[in-house]
Design a protein around this nucleic acid. Structure first.
Lengths: 225, 225
DNA sequence: TGTACCGTCTTGGTATACCACCTCGGAGGT
DNA sequence: ACCTCCGAGGTGGTATACCAAGACGGTACA
């Protein structure tokens, strides 16, 4: 039990970042994270490197920093994701079996549990599961990476019951097009859904940036600029 | 100078893998790599984690192993790359300025230096540079990742002067279509080029697998199966 | 001769000591 | 009062000691 299992440190840090327990832009020190994670520097360091790959943590010179909310990055991720998901769904139409499509449909209908968190989780899971059905792990991993990078901002889009209902409806339409083996329609629906998400999300982000900053979060236009 | 600079360990290992100095499928031990890299376990370990992210190294249980040549992975990467590059070039047509296009064209014409290595390097660089011109770093990094994963097999495709000439011609046609701001043609050319590369590369890989295995390389159909 | 068991050795995982660098703050001089 | 310089503390980077678990081989027994 002296072993903290480096997955634990990673999971703890990741959860802390995604829950805004560690704020966007906040400076991190390897030693300072030891008490939080209950591990020593070695696993903390490994976790930070993994989180850097996921884009949740960045290097600021030599120092570590929770990645700020980067509007340009969000925009770029959404653009990239649109291409990836359109390509993936075309493959899904070709390759997915009935069982896979049924599993995908299960993500859409969750009449019992609801609320923003469920909408957020299911939304991400749906898109990753869709990409996974392409049978190509690179589509799945690219989608997973995109969803991770969007995790901290996507809740802005699923706050209202109306938007969650719209997302469910669009997801359902995508599943139906896949089940009907209608590739052009599936691709068009995915592209439209991506574009809608992009516009709404970027719009909300611009609107809310002051409020987010007021809560201590770093929100930048373009960190690479 | 007691510092080995963990970039050095990473670069050394990466070069050793790409040059087949460390053979595909070969087992690695962190301590065993200390003499090769001239660093201690800590930077070696960091390098291995980075290489794992790039797909050049894998975990086999707890152990490290140079990723075997995986035919299914190569196929999947090429499929993913086709989607990414098609999406990227569409953006390039929209966004690239004359300077960027000129720089891209420079990658195609290298009358002095030649040979398989140059063809390999330029080929990868061309595609990464093209993706970079999209202005979206995620397209660029996805293309870079794809080219890294293909590094150890792509030389099979550029062995003959004929294939190198064909690649140059196709690259040039892509640049011309981009310069002409002809998005449909650029996308079609990129897709055709990707498909051709995929067929030739997978074909050569199937042909040569015995020879590669004879040289001590692990060549598997699908490591995830 | 074959098989099962046990010890040894090597592996990755972790904790930690040490190092060079850099930042920040205080003291002293102008 | 301000500016400069120096020193102390903290940072990531590295090397290394220690640990538990697994692999391998040899030995003893059936």
């Amino acid at each position: 039990m002296p072993q903290s299992d480096d997955r634990a440190a990673y999971a703890t840090l990741r959860a802390a970042i995604l829950s805004f327990d560690l704020l966007p832009g906040e400076a991190l020190s390897e030693r300072g994270l030891e008490p939080l994670t209950g591990a020593s520097r070695t696993p903390v360091r490994a976790a930070l490197m993994r989180l850097e790959n996921e884009g949740l943590v960045r290097r600021d010179g030599r120092a570590w920093r929770v990645s700020p909310i980067d509007v340009a990055e969000v925009r770029a991720v959404l653009e990239f994701r649109a291409t990836v998901e359109a390509g993936a769904v075309a493959l899904v139409v070709e390759r997915a079996d009935g069982e896979g499509i049924a599993a995908l449909r299960a993500f859409v209908s969750h009449p019992d549990e609801d609320g923003p968190e469920a909408g957020l989780r299911d939304g991400g899971d749906f898109h990753v599961a869709l990409a996974r059905l392409s049978g190509n792990p690179f589509f799945a991993s690219a989608m997973d990476d995109a969803m991770t990078r969007l995790s901290r901002t996507r809740w802005l889009e699923v706050r209202t019951e109306q938007s969650r209902a719209q997302a469910r409806a669009e997801h359902l339409a995508i599943v139906d097009a896949v089940a009907a083996r209608d590739a052009p329609r599936a691709v068009a629906l995915v592209s439209a859904h991506s574009a809608g998400t992009r516009d709404r999300l970027v719009g909300f982000l611009e609107e809310e940036r002051r409020r987010l900053r007021g809560r201590g979060m770093a929100v930048v236009d373009d960190a690479s600029a």
